[in-house]
């Protein structure tokens, strides 16, 4: 029996409020994280993702408070990411209510962080987020960027995904920087290239603008296991329940 394909709203949180930008910049406000979490849970979200993108030195405190206040409202899994660079950062949010942590820049800089987290908390707790960009110099055609998409490491995205899996990542959150905020649809080529090379779930992210984009990325073989979206939900263009009914009609197994 196949698992249900997951629909995951993503909340980019900056200084305690949800924001959304294009190509990772020009941020605008989209509301209170806890209120949005409650709304999405009620509408049938399968999971929630929180990415803390604050630049302040208060980061740590923000994340712990966020974990606690969201955990009080949610009975579905939720992941916190952004600025988690050590086992103690991860422990801090996991013991305060988060179910998983997502690591990105710090994992590229120090891949053993992935193995350390998996050993202590289990693979199911560890999401490796990869921000990928088309790069013709890279073997797979995609390279890994860090620091919120601003720095191209030149590292091949497929190779890094495979290495992360080997080190114990339980999931890959794969964001296309080229598509982020464009509403042109997920980068299907990127997603399928990575999903065919790893045996852990892949969450597709970046570019969702219409209901059919969900279907395109969740159908067929080597597709995504989950689709993440932000602005289409934040600005009320689509409802999660509506997306799921549509997918079900198209023959995609979802939880309704």
């Amino acid at each position: 029996m196949p698992l249900a394909k997951r629909i995951i709203p993503c909340l980019d949180v900056k200084n305690g409020e949800v924001v959304k930008g294009t190509h990772f910049v020009s941020l605008r406000s989209a509301g209170d994280p806890v209120e949005l979490a409650k709304k999405y849970r009620k509408d049938g979200a399968d999971e929630l993702m929180f990415l803390d993108i604050s630049a302040s030195t208060e980061k740590r405190k923000t994340k712990v408070n966020l974990a606690r206040s969201v955990a009080k409202e949610l009975d579905i899994p939720f992941t916190i990411g952004g600025g988690i660079s050590s086992v103690s950062d991860a422990r801090n949010v996991l013991t305060n209510g988060a179910d998983k942590v997502s690591v990105n820049t710090s994992a590229v800089a120090n891949p053993s962080l992935v193995s350390d987290l998996a050993d202590i908390f289990g693979a199911q707790c560890v999401v490796v987020a990869i921000d990928a960009k088309r790069n013709s110099n890279s073997g797979s055609g995609f390279s890994v960027c860090t620091y919120g998409g601003s720095f191209d490491t030149g590292l091949d995205a497929v190779q890094w995904a495979k290495a992360a899996e080997k080190r114990g990542a339980g999931e890959i959150l794969l964001t296309s920087i080229d598509r982020d905020g464009t509403k042109l649809g997920y980068d299907s080529e990127l997603t399928r290239r990575i999903a065919s090379q790893v045996s852990i779930p892949v969450i597709a992210s970046g570019g969702c603008g219409e209901i059919k984009h969900f279907y395109e990325i969740l159908r067929g073989t080597n597709c995504a296991d989950a689709a993440l979206a932000a602005s289409v939900f934040h600005y009320g263009e689509l409802k999660i329940s509506q997306v799921k009914r549509y997918l079900l009609k198209k023959g995609i197994e979802v939880r309704v």
Binding site: L3, G170, E171, S199, I200
Partner: peptide, 15 residues
Amino acid sequence: ESKQNLKVPHMGWNR
């Protein structure tokens, strides 16, 4: 057993 496209861990919503 991870085989035949079976992803392990079994992670997500199932019946």
